[in-house]
Design a protein around this nucleic acid. Structure first.
Lengths: 159, 159
DNA sequence: GAAGGATAGTTGCCGATGCAACAAATAGCT
DNA sequence: AGCTATTTGTTGCATCGGCAACTATCCTTC
């Protein structure tokens, strides 16, 4: 058991456990302080920035599943943090926005988010973080471009 | 909707969606080709490298929950890819290892893993990837060191 | 060697997440 | 206008993953 597992150098794995650790730590904080789940927190963050938008807009902005957005909105509405008004341009959807209570909570939530981000990233320069973000975005893109058939045909590059 | 959402610059969020995209893409591949879940794949990778070890060892090496390891082992055993032999040093546990069939599958799985990693990381230098891995590990560590009470006491650093 | 505590593995349960199917409304085509 | 396809939001269902509780075995201490 002295040997370092190759798994520990498999980048998708390292990415996964780092992401789980960071997200888990932040989720724990929001749950403990305000009883908010991650999707709920994301919706509040977006509504605070964008004001009256639809669930569809929230889905696109958050990159979450529309069902996750819908459930988060429902919970927030039941808690009186978010309100819906009819959308006169489109009868299928509603316009969502923070209530006064929701706006007040948003004012506490965002500073905590920034502070936790700052602490988690403590010790890295702005340039390092920018490069890190750029790499994340590119890995994200490139993972979606990998073509299965392509891999199949060359026998994993070992044939 | 022209504005770039601040959420898109929130590092834990970027980390989360990048990780989900990468893991999801790879998980899809393993599911389609061999019907393996991510935990099952990880167990096979570790058994291929370490040979006869216990579930406890697998839990430590994989950083997964012991329940996840147990369920993965059970599925792999039922599929005839993994076998248990009694552990003479400790009657509570068994020694797990790949069967001949499992070893054959392992021989196909690992090249695919490396090839997908290579394609997802295509365009980055070894130095960039090393730095990226180091940052992942450090973010992981630092997220676990953030102290709630500490944040509480300074009112999120906003006075 | 018996008792108490620790550890390995297992099971059940609950919450989170995602997809498929659906209803309501809109948009496009003729 | 009327028919069809698309889009938005919603519900139900299956799955996944983690935690708590439990059993069996081991270790320590007396």
């Amino acid at each position: 058991m002295q040997q370092i597992a190759p798994l520990a150098r498999f980048l998708p794995y390292q990415l996964s456990i780092a992401s789980n650790a960071v997200s888990g730590r932040i989720a724990q904080e929001y749950r403990a302080r305000w009883g908010l789940s991650v999707p709920e927190w994301r919706v509040m963050a977006l509504l605070g920035d964008f004001g009256k938008i639809t669930q569809r807009d929230l889905t696109r902005l958050s990159l979450m599943d529309k069902v996750a957005v819908n459930r988060a909105c429902k919970v927030l509405e039941d808690r009186g943090l978010v309100e819906r008004t009819p959308n006169e341009q489109d009868g299928r959807s509603h316009l969502l926005d923070l209530t006064a209570t929701g706006r007040e909570m948003h004012g506490q939530i965002m500073p905590l988010a920034r502070e936790m981000e700052r602490r988690i990233c403590d010790g890295f320069s702005a340039a390092e973080l920018d490069m890190f973000r750029a790499m994340l975005d590119r890995l994200h893109m490139q993972s979606e471009m990998v073509d299965s058939d392509d891999i199949e045909s060359d026998n994993f590059g070992i044939g």
